[in-house]
């Protein structure tokens, strides 16, 4: 209902969303390792391409493109710096291998961004919270995580209401110099803090009333179970790692320049 809708999560079902977040995390690590092991453009390009089916299966292409666009500035920076350093160290001229090398470094960064964004775009916070609960992380931590996800949008909306209430009493947030502007926010911050304290008290009261802390041996409504998809992903991970090690050790990797 408001500007803060983006902060709110929604449950989405897709073969990728339904995967066990723990396995997905291992997958991110595997891609990470592979991307570090290779420094040539061709294998890194392949690592980039093999992830695209995941993105398409999860139907998050639009968000995924947005995150890549977000990384574009840093990627350009990495490319320019790499080209520049080789330019200065190799006696002031551009060579094809140097540029290819810079492109590979940039590609490595893009692959990392890609795999992390696939993970976060396809893992809902409640799934992540559950994974935390099922791991050896203390329950209080997992609870704090999910509660934060639950209440961040609520607080954001409340901040908007408070700003509206004070603007209706003639407060002009954008008026004055920098110091005055900071002071303008006092009438917004105090009610926000007071209300957050009140809210947390009410939350604590509700938790107490529902037997919070009754036993150390908590149970859980959900259980993370491995499904077919998860086993398939495990197979893919193992495949990627074996291929990575084999290729790195025994296969001479051509450069693009060598094709010409």
């Amino acid at each position: 209902m408001s500007v803060f809708d983006g902060l709110r999560f929604r449950k989405v079902h897709s073969p990728i969303h339904n995967l066990d977040p723990r396995i997905k995390f291992v997958y991110v690590i595997a891609i990470f390792v592979a991307a570090i092991i290779f420094y040539q453009i061709i294998p890194l390009l392949i690592l980039f391409l093999i992830q695209i089916p995941f993105v398409l299966l999860a139907r998050v292409q639009r968000q995924w493109l947005r995150s890549l666009r977000g990384a574009a500035f840093l990627a350009t920076f990495i490319f320019v710096v790499n080209v520049a350093t080789t330019f200065f160290t190799s006696g002031y001229h551009f060579t094809a291998p140097n540029i290819e090398n810079a492109a590979a470094m940039t590609m490595r960064f893009v692959v990392l961004v890609e795999s992390f964004s696939v993970f976060f775009l396809t893992t809902s916070p409640d799934h992540l919270g559950l994974a935390l609960e099922e791991s050896r992380v203390p329950y209080e931590f997992a609870f704090a995580f999910t509660t934060a996800v639950r209440f961040v949008p609520v607080l954001a909306e409340e901040a908007q209401t408070i700003m509206d209430a004070q603007k209706a009493r003639g407060l002009e947030l954008e008026k004055g110099g920098i110091l005055k502007r900071i002071r303008n926010y006092v009438p917004v911050l105090i009610p926000l803090i007071v209300s957050a304290i009140r809210r947390s008290l009410e939350l604590a009261e509700a938790m107490e009333s529902r037997a919070w802390g009754a036993t150390k041996k908590r149970t859980n409504l959900y259980a993370l179970k491995l499904h077919k998809g998860d086993y398939a992903l495990v197979a893919i991970i193992v495949g990627i790692l074996i291929a990575t090690v084999y290729i790195r050790l025994y296969v001479p990797i051509p450069t693009i320049a060598s094709f010409f």
């Binding site: 209401t161 209430a165 603007k167 209706a168 009438p187 007071v194």
Partner: peptide, 21 residues
Amino acid sequence: SVAALARNVGFVFQNPDHQLF
């Protein structure tokens, strides 16, 4: 602006805790 309009139109929000400071 809101400030100018508010001179003639007073708005009291539902929850007083959203404005008392």
